[in-house]
Structures are given as C-alpha cells and as structure tokens.
Design a protein around this nucleic acid. Structure first.
Lengths: 127, 127
DNA sequence: TGAAGTGTACCATGAGATATAATACACTGT
DNA sequence: ACAGTGTATTATATCTCATGGTACACTTCA
C-alpha cells in the first residue's frame, strides 16, 4: 500500500495519515472503499496497532474516512464535506506561500505560470 | 515582528522558523538586512535563547540567512541559491497535492484555475 | 585596553509527545 | 459460538522540546 520512512523526522502515525490521505484525495481509494483494518495494517507495516488507530482517528476527525463499529473503516464520500471553506482558505494560504518561495528562488512570473498550467493539465491522470 | 501561538501544535522553534522564513521570502526582510539577535528576539518572545538559536541554525542550513561571528545574522542573498532544482521539485509536489485536495473538496477545474490566477495577480503586492 | 553585544557550545532538567506492549470490551457477519 | 472489526485502558521506555545556566571567541566602539 505504501512504505514508511523510519529515517524521516515525521512521526510514524503522521506518515500513515499523510499517505492514507494521499490515497483518498487522489482517488486510489474511492468513496466507500474499505481500508485495511487496524490490525492488518499494523502487521503490514510492523507497527503497533495503537499507532495505526491514532492515525485513523485523526483522519476521521478531518473527514477523510468514516467508521462502522464491527465492520471497518471506509473512505469518506466527499459530497458529505459540503465545501469546507475554512479548509479551502488554509490550502489557499499554503499555495500562496509556496508561490512566494518559488519567486524567491529565482523563478519568473512566466515560469511559475507555466508550472501551474502543467500541474492543471496533469489533472487527467488523477481523476 | 511576529507573534507566537502557544496553543499551536507546532513547536516554538518551528514557529520561529516559519515566521522568519515568511518575512524573508516575502521581502519584508531584504537581502543583507540584519535580523534581531538571538538574545534580543528571545526577550521579545519571552522564549529561551537556545530555542531561537535552534531556529536560526535551521534557517541557515536551508540557506535563508547567513551568520557573521560577532556581528549578527542577516537575510541571505537569494542569488546565492542558484536555482535549487531539488527544492523546486519539493514545492511542486506540495502544490500538486494541494490541488488534488481542492478538487477532492468539490472545486471545479475552472474554480481552481481562477484561484491560481488570482494568487498570481496578487504578486504585485508582494514584490 | 575594556566593555558591550554578537554567535556558539555545552550540560542538566522537566514536560510532553511518541511508540510500544498487553488486555479487555462491544459490535458485526457468517 | 466464532472470527474479525473498532475502541478503550494501563503501563513503560524513548525521544523531542523547551528551559536554565554557564562559558568562550569574536566584533565594534568608546
């Protein structure tokens, strides 16, 4: 499913959160798809079940998956997230900061514009 | 200069890094501008000098400032960072991931495109 | 020369986060 | 009943974070 980087500064449960979130928002895990169980994933990654559970709970709080007692955890239906404007603003700020840094690193307005256009056309590959 | 958020999940030194980095890449601190000394900033933020020093060292390693023994720390000249392609790729991946999330949250291709265009035109306000 | 301000390097300590281990319980499906 | 699921709890060890305190080498300026 994905690999852990034990040499990373990121904590393990944080890596699980990021990797799982990436699988969900990129559509690899489609809405209502079943995720690996806590115990199964902990065995796969050779990690403590508590660590996986902590990651799953964080993802549930952020709305990326939901849980059914006794059944398992599933990728959320993004329709439920009725346009979280607050989160959109957070992302906008993040992108703004990234653009500033690209300019700081010496890229021109045209180069940045081209980079963004390229990322947008990649869109076909995701969806 | 900037404020700390003690309720944040981010560590203090991490907040110092992010805030100072923002001041540098946004041009508030221009190349060769002097930064507050370790002791001065630690007094301003009522934080331990060691914490500020840790942040400054991190920023120096990342190339955002430089140090002269006995003189102080200064904002770096980005010309020195001759187009760090590695860092640019990291940023590109971050933006790509953010765009995926915007789509996941229900934004259309046109809306995302408009958002990016708006961020690019803001550019005048930064530089 | 001396004093003040600068970055840097230690060491020690407490608080909190992280990851682990081991149990236990309630729920669902077959 | 049974196996698989999420969840909760307790305990422990380790690491990072932040602090306090001290010391040293360097620069500038009176």
């Amino acid at each position: 499913m994905f690999q852990l980087d034990l040499k990373s500064r990121k904590s393990i449960y944080e890596q699980v959160v990021d990797n799982m979130k990436e699988l969900i928002i990129s559509g690899v895990l489609k809405p209502e798809d079943k995720l690996p169980s806590v115990r199964e994933l902990s065995k796969t990654l050779t990690v403590n079940p508590n660590t996986v559970q902590k990651a799953y709970r964080a993802l549930e709080n952020q709305g990326y998956l939901y849980t059914v007692a006794g059944l398992g955890t599933f990728a959320a239906c993004p329709d439920t997230n009725i346009r979280d404007e607050r989160l959109i603003n957070v992302i906008r700020d993040r992108i703004r900061s990234d653009l500033k840094e690209l300019f700081y690193l010496g890229m021109s307005q045209e180069e940045v514009s081209a980079l963004l256009k390229e990322l947008l056309t990649e869109r076909g590959g995701w969806k």
